[in-house]
Design a protein around this nucleic acid. Structure first.
Lengths: 348, 348
DNA sequence: GTGAAAGCGCTAACAA
DNA sequence: TTGTTAGCGCTTTCAC
C-alpha cells in the first residue's frame, strides 16, 4: 500500500547495498555473492520494485519498443499485419506500439512524428506519395515501409501487386469473362500496379477493361460505387475490386439491386480478409499474405536495429489466388453482356 | 544531417539563452521578448529540435499516453472499442497505445504490467476472473475495466448483457421460435449474464433453452460447434450465439451441412460487427455500442486523471436490437422440430 | 564483487 | 523576462 512506486534507491537502502549493485542485479550484468543476492531478492520482492523503463531508456537510448502506424484498424488487412508484426516483436522481447492514422494524411505525419520519439524504430503504412516522405528519414529512426520506394533508400516490404492483379485477371479470363471492370482506390500506392496487371493481361487477349474508382477502401465505398457500374448500359460480367472490403460492399448492393451473384456478375477482391470466407457467396480473392507482411517488416526492422544490414531494400512476397464462390464460369461470347440473366427487382 | 538528435542544450547554445528559457518556450509557459523569441524560433527550426518526451516524462511524471489492452485485434468488436477510445484520446491530446493480449492470460498480465509503466492510465479488457485481478490495482495506475467488478473498486463500463440477451430472446419468441439453443463462450465475463437473460425470458414463456459452449469467441469456433448442434436429435429452430463471429462461422457451416438459412434455422449474435451486415443472410444482432464503450471508458479514465472523481463506478450502456435477415418467423407449434423443413444435403 | 560519482535530457522552483 | 540550480530514476565507467 504505497503511494508511489519504490525506486532503485529504496531497494538499495532496504538491501543495504549501493544503487549500482541493484542496477546490475536487475540487468543481470554481473554475478553476486550469495548474501548480497539474497538480500537483493528479498528487498525487491518485499517492496514490489519494478524498474522504471523511462529512466532506463533515457540512458541507454533504447526503449525495446517498435512503433507501427496503420491506416485503419478496422480493415482486417491491417489487423493481420499487426498480428504478424506483434508475433515477431514478442519473440524478440520487443513491445509493439500501434497508432491508427485513420486514413488522414495530416494526422499521419503528426502521429508518426510523436510516436517516433518513443520507440527504437517504426514500421509505417502510408498513403503519402514518395515525394512527401523525406521527413520520415529525418526522424533519425530506422523505418520500414509497406510498398516499394523508388528514390528514397527506405527498406520496405510488399506483395507483388502487379503479379497478383495479373493472376486474378487471368483467372477471370480462363473462366470466360470478357467484359470486366476494375473498381480501384486511387489513393493507394498499390492501385496503379493493380490496374497495370489487369490491363496487361486483358490486352494480351485483345480486350480492354473499364476502370472505376471508389472513394475509400471500405465496404461502404463499395456499396456506393455499385449502382453506377451495374446499372450502366454496358454492365460488366465481372468486377475486380481494389480490396475485399470494397468487394463485400459491392456484392451487398448488387444483391439489393436484384442481381444474383455470381450468376449475374462475378466479384473478386484482394487481401483475403477473414470475412470474405463467411460471406455468401464466399469471396474469391488474392491472398496478399498480410500477416507475413507484418512479420517480414518487423524482422527487417529488428535486423536493422541489430546492425545486421544488407538484408536488401525491398522484400516482395508472392500472392496466391483463393478461389471461392463469387465467380462463375461463362460461355465465351454466348450472351449479350448488356442484358441481365435474371430480371433485377428492387428489394423492399 | 546530424548523427543524433539535438538536445535542449544545443538549442540554448545556438540561441544564446539558457536551457530554462528554451524549456519554457517549448512548453508555452511564459511570454518572451521579441528578440529572444526570434532567436529561439530560428535555432529550433535550424536544428530541427524536438524535445525528448522521455526526459520530459521523467520529471513531470506524466506521459500523456493511455494504454489500452484488448483481447484480440482481429475481433471487430475490439477494433470498434479502439476507434472510440482513440477519438476521445486525440481530442484531449493523449496518445493511445495498444496491446493485443491474444486471449492469453499469462501474456495478459505480463503485457499489461509492462505497458502500465509507460502510460498515465490503462483501459483493459480481460478474461481474468475478478479474484485474480487485484494486481491491477497494485499497478498504481488508474485503470478502467470493461465489465463490472463486484468486490474491487475499479471503475468500469459495459453494455447491459442481461438486458441484451433478454431482448434478443424476446424477439425470437415473438417470431414464434420455441426450441432455441444458446451457443456461448464460457470464459467471457459476459457469458453468464447472457445465459441468464435468455433463460429468464424463455422461462416466462414456460420454455427452456439448450446451452452449448464454443471453445473461442471466433468464427472458426462457431463453425466447429455447428454440426453437434444442428445434427443432434432435437435440432433447434434458432440459435443465439455468444457473438457475431461465432454466429458467422455457425451460419457458414450450417449452409455447408445443407441447411437453408434462415428457413431451417435462425441465427443471431451479439456485437453488431460490420461484417454481419455483409454476410448473407445479413446477421440479426444486438448492437452493444462497442465504439461508445471505448469512448466512455476513455472519458472516464481521463476524468480520473484530471481529478474529477465521482463519475460513478460502473457505466452501463443500452443495447439495441438490429433486425436483419438471419431469422425467420415461424408458425407456432406448427411443425415437429425434429425434422428439417428442407432436406439437408452435403455440399461438394 | 561492490560502490562512488557522473550524467541521460529535461523541468521546476527560486533568484536575479 | 531570464538564468541558476537541483534533481527525475536509472546506468555506467572506474576505483576499490
Amino acid at each position: 500500500m504505497k503511494k508511489s512506486s519504490p525506486t532503485i534507491r529504496d531497494v538499495a537502502a532496504a538491501a543495504e547495498v549501493s544503487v549500482a549493485t541493484v542496477s546490475k542485479y536487475m540487468n543481470n550484468t554481473q554475478r553476486f555473492s550469495a548474501p548480497v543476492e539474497a538480500k537483493l531478492k528479498a528487498a525487491i520482492e518485499q517492496l514490489g520494485y519494478r524498474s522504471n523503463p523511462l529512466a532506463r531508456s533515457m540512458i541507454t537510448g533504447k526503449t525495446r519498443t517498435i512503433g507501427l502506424a496503420i491506416l485503419d484498424i478496422r480493415n482486417p488487412h491491417f489487423t493481420n499485419i499487426v498480428k504478424g508484426a506483434n508475433r515477431i516483436a514478442m519473440q524478440n522481447d520487443y513491445t509493439l506500439l500501434l497508432v491508427d492514422t485513420e486514413e488522414s494524411q495530416e494526422r499521419e505525419r503528426q502521429l508518426i512524428e510523436a510516436l517516433a520519439q518513443r520507440v527504437d524504430g517504426m514500421i509505417v503504412s502510408s498513403r503519402m506519395p514518395e515525394e512527401a516522405i523525406q521527413w520520415m528519414i529525418d526522424l533519425n529512426k530506422p523505418v520500414v515501409l509497406f510498398g516499394r520506394t523508388r528514390e528514397l533508400p527506405i527498406p520496405s516490404v510488399g506483395t507483388d501487386s502487379h503479379l497478383a492483379a495479373y493472376m486474378l485477371a487471368r483467372h477471370l479470363l480462363n473462366e470466360g469473362h470478357r467484359h470486366v471492370a476494375y473498381l480501384g482506390f486511387g489513393q493507394s500506392r498499390w492501385n496503379a500496379e493493380r490496374i497495370r496487371g489487369v490491363t496487361e493481361c486483358f490486352q494480351e487477349a485483345g480486350l480492354t477493361i473499364d476502370v472505376h474508382d471508389a472513394h475509400a477502401p471500405s465496404a461502404q465505398a463499395g456499396e456506393h460505387a455499385c449502382s453506377a457500374i451495374m446499372l450502366a448500359p454496358k454492365r460488366p460480367q465481372a468486377v475486380i475490386c481494389y480490396n475485399d472490403l470494397i468487394a463485400l460492399g459491392f456484392m451487398k448492393e448488387a444483391r439489393a439491386l436484384g442481381f444474383k451473384l455470381p450468376d449475374d456478375v462475378s466479384v473478386v477482391g484482394f487481401d483475403n480478409v477473414p470475412y470474405g470466407e463467411y460471406a455468401s457467396p464466399a469471396l474469391t480473392t488474392m491472398d496478399l499474405q498480410s500477416e507475413r507482411m507484418g512479420e517480414v517488416a518487423m524482422q527487417k526492422l529488428l535486423d536493422v536495429l541489430a546492425g545486421h544490414d544488407g538484408n536488401g531494400e525491398y522484400s516482395l512476397l508472392e500472392p496466391r489466388l483463393i478461389v471461392r464462390e463469387s465467380t462463375r464460369r461463362r460461355e465465351v461470347g454466348a450472351e449479350p453482356v448488356s442484358l441481365p440473366t435474371s430480371k433485377p427487382r428492387r428489394k423492399a
